[in-house]
Design a protein around this nucleic acid. Sequence first.
DNA 1: GTGGTCTAGACCACG
DNA 2: GTGGTCTAGACCACC
Lengths: 127, 127, 127, 127
Amino acid sequence: MYITIDEEDKRPVYRQVADEIKGLIASRELREGVALPPVRQVAADLGVNLNTIAAAYRELKKEGLLIVKHGSGAIVSTSSAQAVRKDADLRKPLRAALAQMVLAGLSRSEVLAAVDEEMRALLKNHA
Amino acid sequence: MYITIDEEDKRPVYRQVADEIKGLIASRELREGVALPPVRQVAADLGVNLNTIAAAYRELKKEGLLIVKHGSGAIVSTSSAQAVRKDADLRKPLRAALAQMVLAGLSRSEVLAAVDEEMRALLKNHA
Amino acid sequence: MYITIDEEDKRPVYRQVADEIKGLIASRELREGVALPPVRQVAADLGVNLNTIAAAYRELKKEGLLIVKHGSGAIVSTSSAQAVRKDADLRKPLRAALAQMVLAGLSRSEVLAAVDEEMRALLKNHA
Amino acid sequence: MYITIDEEDKRPVYRQVADEIKGLIASRELREGVALPPVRQVAADLGVNLNTIAAAYRELKKEGLLIVKHGSGAIVSTSSAQAVRKDADLRKPLRAALAQMVLAGLSRSEVLAAVDEEMRALLKNHA
DNA sequence: GTGGTCTAGACCACG
DNA sequence: GTGGTCTAGACCACC
């Protein structure tokens, strides 16, 4: 499981980790039922505190993406797709991301091209 | 100037306000040279402390979107477009937003429809 | 008397004006005894409030560079040179300016070249 | 970390602190990767409010000189040098500082000696 | 323990 | 009347 931490990134480390795992699940590089590596191993790999990774897993569990089985690790929830959020929650980050790009001077077609590219990456493992 | 604060939102209030104003500038509801309402008025309208809004304005000033003239208010910078370019990766927030939607179970076409809708809203005031 | 105001500049307008006049005196483009243009005219030329220019003149008077004769305008003080400041006051801005350049990656010789260039401009009207 | 606040100085306290730290970084008394003292400690040492120092750190973070890791302190950015380049004109503060010295009656050689002395102090820790 | 945010309210600087 | 700064003190988020 390839994850990287960006020191310059403003988000807290645990969110970065959670978001990256979320991305891996969305793109099906991590499929339903698959076991995630132990918290301690990920922590060691990334050189961060154990608590930080534990917080990331806890976050994903709260969002319904992970099933954490005490004593035997965490697996990707079989119902991860249903971990649906309210439409508003989905729209706000989308709007902010698009507004940022428009402000940066990107044209409509440039933005759409970027969206298309990202969607391809996300969906390349989907049926 | 219509702005709302969402208590559920995890971003700090001053960031929410800054981001909303950024959105208004991107969609040209606030155009270059236009004066923003006084800090104190916005604070009163939203029911938050003066300092919180002052922090939002300072943020936008630092990002080059606002020109604040001490004693005579703040106006939208004439170079607001270029200002954002130096801001880090435009892709990261986009990717995160799209991943979230895919995870929520939205199909490719549903996502694209949402993107299209938001882009229309953003660009409706553009030449 | 050529003065320009930079809207992007962080300094208050009255300080920008005062500093520019100070530079003109230092470089002897404005010589001792010479009359400065009326506050109203400068204000009109620059398109700023009369009080702003008045504040700039007041500032320069306080620093001993100008002699303001009530009802008959202001002239450059004959003892403008003696309007000396404490050494510390002179060093702090110098140190800050140099530190900024060093941080920006300029080499020692590049910094010295810049200093030399600026000194030439300042001293070109000196005996 | 030796920092002093000058009540006579017209700059706000948080700017003074930020500028002093900037100077320490430029002169490599604070090197890349080094941890800065906690906000609360600096505040206590200088006898000012916590928020004032927090503002200084936030300033330096925005300028790219500091990497602040929430919960585990702030360190000097590894790319602190490039960070400053984008900051506005390097010449304006230099010109103002030199003009001030010339006005004070310092001769060309006296000014150059002062510059030389400051440059030595700044560069004494450089390779 | 660390930094971050927010409030309430005072006072200053600018135009 | 505008924005800016600072204090005092509470509470939250992160590691």
